[in-house]
């Protein structure tokens, strides 16, 4: 674990999708997400020695990814909603996404980052509350509260959207 750079990049590459997707969900754009990935790798490489237990690598790397993404957003104040790239992404992906999902996607992007983070970790990365609490260094109950609060906000947002369309 504390070894050479080859084994380090191997471990990172095993988790590259995860890191990239989390980063992407914050910035919604491939270039920025890649930049974040590189930053995460760089930071992790420098501080891998401070990681005492190898079994905590996953929560550790996720935490670095989240923090780096949030810092990146703060730094460039780029919060991107549906943009061209997303349109491309929809069009060249399967066209299976209906409007409702896109509404939800929009609503999610409007969420405060701390709510967004728990939603990503809970529903997209399928982490348990315990795992999320480890990643975010928050008590389990706080994580639960934040998730339910996030869902409430999403529901309200969707109803607004729905009524507007309807």
């Amino acid at each position: 674990m504390h070894g050479d750079k080859e084994s380090f990049s191997l471990i990172i590459k095993e988790r590259k999708e995860k890191i990239y997707r989390i980063a992407y969900s914050y910035v919604n754009n491939a270039d920025d997400a890649l930049e974040i990935v590189q930053e995460v790798v760089y930071k992790a490489f420098l501080s891998i020695k401070t990681l005492k237990y190898p079994e905590y690598f996953d929560p550790w790397i996720i935490r670095i990814t989240i923090n780096t993404s949030i810092n990146y957003l703060k730094k460039y104040k780029k919060v991107l909603y549906l943009n061209e790239e997303f349109d491309n992404y929809i069009s060249d992906g399967s066209s299976a996404y209906n409007e409702e999902v896109i509404d939800l996607y929009n609503a999610l992007n409007k969420l405060d980052v701390k709510y967004k983070t728990v939603v990503i970790l809970r529903y997209f990365e399928d982490l348990t509350f315990q795992e999320i609490s480890k990643v975010l260094d928050l008590p389990v109950n706080t994580v639960k509260t934040q998730l339910y609060r996030a869902l409430d906000i999403l529901k309200v947002e969707l109803e607004k959207e729905g009524s507007r369309i309807g």
Partner: peptide
């Protein structure tokens, strides 16, 4: 990109 990050580090 990852290799580059490792190199930088």
């Amino acid at each position: 990109i990852i290799d580059e990050g490792v190199k930088k580090g």
